[in-house]
Design a protein around this nucleic acid. Structure first.
Lengths: 377, 377
DNA sequence: GGTAGAACTGAATCACATC
DNA sequence: GGATGTGATTCAGTTCTAC
């Protein structure tokens, strides 16, 4: 767990065993290019946003950018930052699976550049998320609003990707049964969670709270998924991924951060598998054909079905279709036609009479599922 | 007050008397070019968001969502939208006083394009502000997080501008004596405030709440200042500016919106100078999600919960749901299922063990609130 | 007239498996 | 890969309707 690899140690078409749950030491783009295409489920990135550039950034022609504050150099440094952003996002996109998603966090200094580039490269933004800080740093000069939030962008690799992972039902159930909003509230990373160096100073300037990563990982990955962090830093992504039963890949240049991250991740104990089960809803349930209710003698041909208010009725035929006046077809089709709608969920529309009351046929589907499960096991 | 001017009625080097507190009818860039340079204190802009909606969207009850599909929100490409954005921002910048500031509102569809262009044109971002909606539209299909906020960018014309207006003390005083944060909470514009047409339908698809404009105007202008709105729409900016004793200039193309705005603004009575206190946003109840207890390490996945008499127990999972036998879901849902009730308040039903005794999880919620309330829920 | 419940609404980039 | 059929999905309000 959490070994370190030099890029030179990776073979060209590297095997997962070479990079899974490891930290790749080196430049972010070079490391991403060592990884196979379509190989990670989710990327979390906390890219640098210092527009002073600190010698980190290069123009597209590889010449170094000097940080200057006047107007034209300002523009110049935006261009350099855009080139840097484009390079790592492109490399990251190659590594992402077709149904994978990417998270990027930033502040107003850089998030607009990042967001534009994400759109330009063909990613499809799913949400922008606001991390509201319970305890942000005050604005000392009193010349602006207190900068009390950061912004995350969540995007799928493809605009047409529909099958990305989103644990909607679990999020809703964990949030008093109302759907999770785009504004999240967490404290900043302080206290015992904040890594310190030998002098007791903070080890990393922008260590993210584990709760933030936990929300991200729990919302958009499944247990066993692979999460890549191209700006690994002190390893929050790796620590939370390991605890939550996910695999990670980190990329980091600075040995100090790598050392701290390795030690940190080593100490993590993953949660029990049973505690990692993610709540799923009806969508994940096995399909049941209406005709199975007849097959299983839960419903007999000739039975009359009603909607909740008995405004409509239809009769079950032996072939698993229903008929109502001129309309015949599936429970869904007939329900839609009777109401004049395009669609209708017949399972939650039609009822049958029992003991003078109306029972939903969806109840029979539940019973059928239990029988099918038992037979299948 | 609130007269309408055709662009052809304006002289080349137009005098303030020709355009102050009026609506200029015509294209936004053309109108801006008719105004003298360095002449307005603040610009508020609510440009088209370029939503790029594909098909229809229906609510679960089959009703159709009234989408923003107006012609003015259609652009062929990001490049076309960027060109449009660049043109109006450039024209707006010329009209702005050297110490003036600009506000632009948008969503994730457009705000990254707008923010990048603002930076590219030499504006200097002072804050990004999040408008958190108390009552946003849900995500009906459960495929994303509920899109519950919009973003505003506040920027000065020049990077070196130090003398822009920011009423720090007044904001702080209006906010329980703590400095105003970058996340604001307001309801969307509904009810009596929402302008309707003759048929009772909403007059404008995206009318902004007056409280939002009031916060903006009170924070970044002085009485008597001039506020320009290049996408005037139904005239919220003009109405609030007049009420708060500021001058406005609106630019709008559609006669329907102009007519409604004129009538609306006519009816406004300016407040007495002494009454120009800041309108504060609605304070929400401090709502705590069960998953926050895990986020804040007040409870760990794997913890066993009991009811008061230890008749029932359930286990906490990492996703913030709980599981008991065949039942899994929210603390409320599982409590209800176990007791055979329709509903159950999980907060006052479930306990955790500590020092051999049982403690209500509602106690943990109380502790979590202490950390959260500071941020105003 | 008052109240309870139904109906309606809002800047929305909102399936997916099978044939 | 395209067409087809099944079937999953909503929060905080305000306004309207029935009694």
């Amino acid at each position: 767990m959490s070994a370190v690899r030099l890029l030179s140690q990776l073979s060209q078409a590297s095997q997962p065993s070479e990079w899974l749950d490891t930290i790749l030491k080196g430049d972010c783009v070079a490391a991403l290019e060592k990884l196979p295409a379509n190989s990670v489920d989710v990327i979390f990135a906390d890219p640098p946003y210092n527009l002073q550039l600190a010698g980190d950034l290069h123009r597209p022609d590889q010449s170094k950018v000097d940080a200057v504050d006047d107007h034209w150099d300002q523009f110049d440094s935006f261009a350099a930052y855009d080139a840097f952003t484009r390079a790592w996002l492109l490399a990251a996109r190659r590594v992402l699976k077709p149904n994978g998603t990417i998270w990027v966090i930033g502040s107003y200094h850089n998030i607009f550049r990042v967001g534009s580039m994400i759109q330009d490269l063909g990613f499809w933004i799913l949400n922008d998320i606001v991390w509201r800080k319970t305890n942000p740093m005050p604005n000392f000069r009193g010349r602006r609003f207190q900068n009390a939030h950061e912004t995350l962008i969540w995007a799928s690799r493809e605009s047409k990707a529909k099958a990305y992972t989103f644990n909607y039902e679990a999020l809703k159930a964990s949030n008093d049964d109302v759907q999770m909003r785009s504004d999240w509230l967490f404290p900043i990373c302080t206290g015992g969670e904040r890594l310190k160096d030998d002098q007791g100073n903070k080890l990393h300037p922008t260590q993210k709270p584990e709760a933030l990563l936990a929300r991200i990982i729990m919302s958009s990955t499944k247990p066993g998924d692979v999460i890549l962090d191209p700006f690994f830093g002190s390893g929050t992504t790796g620590a939370v991924a390991k605890r939550l039963g996910r695999h990670f890949v980190g990329i980091e240049r600075e040995q100090t951060y790598i050392d701290a991250a390795v030690e940190r991740i080593e100490a993590i104990r993953p949660l029990e598998r049973a505690d990692l089960t993610v709540l799923t809803g009806k969508r994940a349930e096995a399909r049941v054909a209406f005709v199975s209710l007849l097959d299983m003698n839960l419903l007999a041909p000739g039975t009359v079905l009603y909607d909740a208010k008995k405004r409509y009725k239809a009769k079950v035929r032996a072939d698993g279709t229903i008929v109502s006046g001129d309309f015949a077809g599936s429970i869904h089709r007939v329900g839609a036609l009777l109401q004049g709608f395009d669609t209708c969920n017949g399972w939650t529309f039609w009822h049958y009479e029992r003991n003078g009351g109306l029972n939903l046929i969806d109840e029979l589907r539940r019973i059928a599922r239990l029988g099918i499960e038992r037979a299948g096991a």
